[in-house]
């Protein structure tokens, strides 16, 4: 088979060159700041490296150690998985509910929208400190209010059974940020659909489940992936409040990675740890993406393909 050699015109070459020059700032940034570090991390994950000396190639030893010799690895995986399972529904459900409230046509709505969004721009450390005091068992406001109702509040962050739910409940604080995204999705739903449904005699619940939710699924899909990735990256709460305790109940994966990489400077092992997390996140994202064709609806297309 003879391949035809297509000769490009000078104009086409010039156009291509302009294109490459235009994207070169991004391309250079991507190669230096992302691509090379990713390749380096993959390489370092097969080495023993404490930064001070040259890396020593040890093959799969870091991965073998991770899966067979480090009980902390499984504790970190367990705590993180439980956190994702607890916090993700909270942030999705409450985010949608809040966005419905913020979508109402009442006086002063812009003020409420701003109010609920404020926590999203406050530093994670400040929020963690605030929650430490809110949930302080002896003098915290939550237990004080519970005591007025005759309820003995739990010890929250300081009880192995309650520590993880306490940290997960802090996700509530962040729903303002995701509610704004849902709000944009809600406002993209054509009002004539609601009008038609009402003329047909549909009730509010029916409209919500048959129109609002299906047409919000592209936003839900996007938010599910973003919030899931965020949940896997949970760190600040454990680092500031619980230090991973009590009894490793909040010993999250990134805390484990941080200790190995930046306290013990086991950079090779930490590289293997972070690559494992990347793989897990990619698999989970792929799984969500795969299921999306069954539940995500795009206007005019029906279910996503």
């Amino acid at each position: 088979m003879v391949q035809k050699h297509v000769k490009r015109s000078p104009a086409a070459i010039k156009e291509a060159l302009c294109g490459y020059i235009s994207i070169s700032p991004w391309l250079v940034g991507f190669i230096i700041l992302t691509f090379i570090p990713i390749l380096s991390t993959i390489y370092y994950s097969f080495t023993r490296w404490t930064i001070m000396d040259a890396p020593v190639w040890i093959g799969l030893e870091n991965y073998i150690r991770m899966f067979t010799k480090e009980p902390l690895f499984y504790q970190a995986v367990r705590a993180t998985s439980l956190y994702v399972a607890m916090s993700l529904p909270v942030i999705i459900v409450f985010g949608v509910l809040l966005s419905l409230l913020l979508n109402m046509k009442i006086k002063g709505m812009n003020f409420y929208r701003t109010l609920f969004y404020i926590p999203a721009v406050i530093s994670g450390v400040s929020i963690a400190m605030l929650w430490t005091w809110l949930l302080q068992p002896d003098v915290g406001i939550v237990n004080t209010l519970l005591s007025y109702l005759g309820i003995q509040g739990p010890k929250w962050f300081w009880d192995p059974k309650w520590a993880l739910p306490s940290v997960a409940s802090m996700s509530l604080w962040k729903v303002g940020g995701s509610a704004v995204i849902y709000l944009a999705g809600l406002q993209n739903i054509p009002p004539q659909l609601y009008e038609a449904a009402r003329i047909d005699g549909a009730g509010k619940l029916r409209i919500f489940f048959r129109i609002t939710i299906p047409l919000l699924t592209p936003t839900l899909f996007f938010q599910l992936i973003i919030q899931m990735i965020e949940a896997f990256k949970v760190f600040t709460e454990a680092y500031v409040i619980t230090k991973g305790g009590p009894l490793k109940a909040t010993y999250f994966y990134l805390l484990y990675f941080y200790e190995e990489g930046f306290q013990h400077f086991n950079t090779g092992y930490a590289s293997a740890l972070i690559l494992f997390l990347v793989v897990i996140i990619m698999l989970m994202t792929a799984a969500v993406n795969y299921t999306s064709k069954h539940w995500v609806y795009y206007e005019g297309e029906g279910k996503s393909k």
Binding site: T132, W133, Q136, P137, D138, K155, W156, F157, W158
Partner: peptide
């Protein structure tokens, strides 16, 4: 003190 007192 309690553990939470010490912590906070």
């Amino acid at each position: 003190p309690t553990v939470s007192d010490m912590s906070t």
